[in-house]
């Protein structure tokens, strides 16, 4: 196709703009990445000399190990519970009509509007008023509230895209509702369920604001541990920690991508 000079100009302008936007998006990470290799104990930019000692420090700092264990536990349980509950809600919303459906939907999605610190504060006040102990399950509960809307949405969209004919065919072939759910509906929804669970786990793993209100020294999550670290020390350990954090989440996403590819190979998509 023939392109005029102005077309080329527009083409290049578009490319440059796109590069600038992408650069802007990853700029903070690039700065942190470079800073994490700074030898100096003071977080400064650009570094004068290089070292990997802050990575060693990140691994050796006890609170981070403890925080990572807590975060993984909270993310696993939080995403797991949210997946089961969210998938159930999504199924009910998709398949049944009932009174106050819109109201219930609004309540379910309200954590999208209510700020995380409000949710954290609310649970803190509630547990204090009921003199309930604040343990790891308190943190899990807060995270379930926060990630549930995302899981409901994710599964709901998958259900909407699922043609009813599959289930109807199975029913006509003698499949009772539960059997159809287990052999047809769930396998066909699997990509949506996996995506929802992974998304929930990552959200939970990154959650800081609400957690801050409900964690104790023993149950503090990794982001909270990092926050507490930076209040005491100003060295590049936190930059190193950030790089590890990003690497871990990126690895998880890559893994998901691999699984979805695998789905295609297996013809389950």
């Amino acid at each position: 196709m023939y392109k005029s000079f102005s077309d080329h100009l527009l083409d290049w302008a578009g490319r440059i703009l796109l590069t600038l936007i992408l650069g802007f998006l990853v700029l903070p990470f690039i700065v942190v990445f470079i800073a994490s290799f700074n030898e100096s104990a003071i977080l400064s930019f650009p570094p004068q000399s290089w070292s990997t000692r802050w990575y060693v420090n990140a691994f050796e700092y006890r609170d981070f190990g403890n925080g990572l264990r807590n975060s993984l536990r909270v993310a696993a349980f939080g995403a797991g519970i949210a997946l089961v509950a969210g998938a159930g809600f999504a199924y009910v919303f998709n398949r049944y009509d009932f009174a106050f459906k819109n109201t219930l939907n609004g309540i379910l999605l309200s954590p999208l509007i209510i700020p995380n610190f409000t949710i954290g504060l609310g649970v803190l006040v509630l547990t204090a008023a009921a003199s309930m102990p604040r343990n790891v399950w308190t943190v899990v509960a807060v995270h379930v509230i926060i990630v549930l809307p995302f899981v409901v949405r994710s599964v709901y969209v998958s259900l909407q895209n699922l043609e009813r004919a599959y289930e109807q065919a199975a029913e006509s072939l003698g499949g009772r509702p539960l059997h159809v759910l287990l052999t047809i509906t769930l396998p066909l929804l699997l990509p949506g369920l996996v995506a929802g669970a992974i998304f929930a786990a990552i959200l939970s793993f990154n959650e800081f604001t609400a957690s801050l209100y409900v964690v104790s020294q023993r149950t503090e999550t990794l982001p909270v541990a990092m926050y507490n670290y930076v209040r005491e020390y100003a060295d590049p350990t936190l930059a190193a920690m950030s790089v590890l954090y990003v690497a871990a989440v990126a690895a998880l996403l890559l893994l998901v991508h691999k699984i979805f590819r695998l789905e295609k190979v297996l013809n389950v998509d």
Partner: peptide
């Protein structure tokens, strides 16, 4: 009577074969 007890066979427009 629910569909699963009607002993009816159906061929759909898009066939609805179970992809998995």
């Amino acid at each position: 009577v629910p569909p699963y007890q009607r002993e009816i066979g159906i061929v759909f427009q898009n066939y609805a074969l179970f992809p998995h």
